[in-house]
């Protein structure tokens, strides 16, 4: 077996990230082309964290005693920070609401339709059909139905998550060892009691991968919805900046987005891993 060096590997990983950051800086010095006058194609870190960060205050609509740039105020770091917080909150709230709605709806529907082998067969083909429709291409349809404001995005994210959770639930219930159900039934458990005390706990370990998968899909869905017509949020900031070829702003906001997704994924993976400490090693997905 190969010998692993966790400490050494961690140092190499850090070095690679540092090298990427440094390479970006070098590229910004070597490749000085501009997307438009005054807007470098590759903005160095010293530009990103001063001028670019400052320019994000354009996105602050005013309030809290900090006037908006659109009303004639000077750009300030405080306004930039508030703008970042405001748009991050919009994106995260949409994601959270969509995850909640979609997760609950998918779980309840999945459990209900796993009631018997008959209902499972009934929903099999329609479900497979719905899953084949490319999710991201459906954004315009949801915007026609629910508008381009918060509701449209939340329903879209909820739909995307709901399909994943629904399929994951049906699959997890199908994989419960039959003996669990038979034993409980033999001891006189009713269907509802069985669902609550046997089915629900038994699918928890298998649902972990579904939950992690839906978080990733949720971030993608909220980004797609914001790219295609939302009026606020991190995705909106990026495409709005793209229309004016403000590459430095796009890069800064994208970095922020990468940070949020990475942190949320790691936190959720740790949290669910800890919650599943009771499950036998082999059952944890």
């Amino acid at each position: 077996m190969k010998v692993r060096h966790p400490t050494r590997d961690r140092w190499i990983s850090l070095a690679v990230l540092a090298a990427l950051a440094l390479g970006w800086q070098v590229l910004s010095l070597v490749y000085t082309a501009e997307a438009q006058p005054g807007e470098p194609m590759v903005a160095g870190w010293q530009v990103l964290f001063t001028r670019t960060l400052l320019s994000l205050s354009d996105y602050w609509p005013g309030g809290l005693g900090v006037p908006a740039v659109a009303d004639g105020a000077e750009r300030s770091y405080l306004a930039a920070l508030l703008a970042i917080l405001l748009h991050s909150a919009d994106t995260i709230l949409r994601l959270a609401a969509g995850l909640m709605l979609g997760g609950v709806a998918g779980l309840v529907l999945g459990l209900a339709l796993s009631w018997s082998r008959w209902t499972r067969r009934l929903v099999d083909w329609p479900l497979q059909f719905i899953r084949t429709l490319p999710l991201l291409a459906m954004v315009p349809l949801f915007q026609l139905w629910f508008g381009t404001d918060a509701l449209g995005e939340v329903v879209f994210v909820a739909y995307g998550i709901g399909v994943i959770v629904f399929a994951g639930t049906v699959n997890a219930v199908r994989n419960i060892p039959q003996i669990y159900l038979d034993n409980a039934r033999a001891l006189g458990a009713s269907r509802l009691f069985l669902t609550r005390t046997v089915v629900l706990p038994a699918i928890v370990p298998a649902m972990r991968s579904t939950v992690l998968l839906s978080l990733g899909a949720g971030w993608g869905a909220v980004l797609g919805a914001e790219y295609l017509g939302a009026q606020s949020g991190l995705g909106y900031m990026i495409v709005y900046a793209q229309q004016f070829a403000f590459l430095d702003r796009m890069f800064l906001v994208a970095l922020l987005f990468v940070f949020y997704t990475s942190v949320s994924t790691v936190v959720l993976a740790r949290l669910t891993g800890r919650m599943l400490a009771w499950a036998p090693e082999g059952q944890r997905a």
Partner: peptide
Amino acid sequence: QAGLDPVVMTAGTVPILIAAPFLLIW
């Protein structure tokens, strides 16, 4: 692996869609 993992793990968790506006400009 040690060199590629941080890049691939980040790219695996972040929606790739984030790169679309950049590619459109480039």
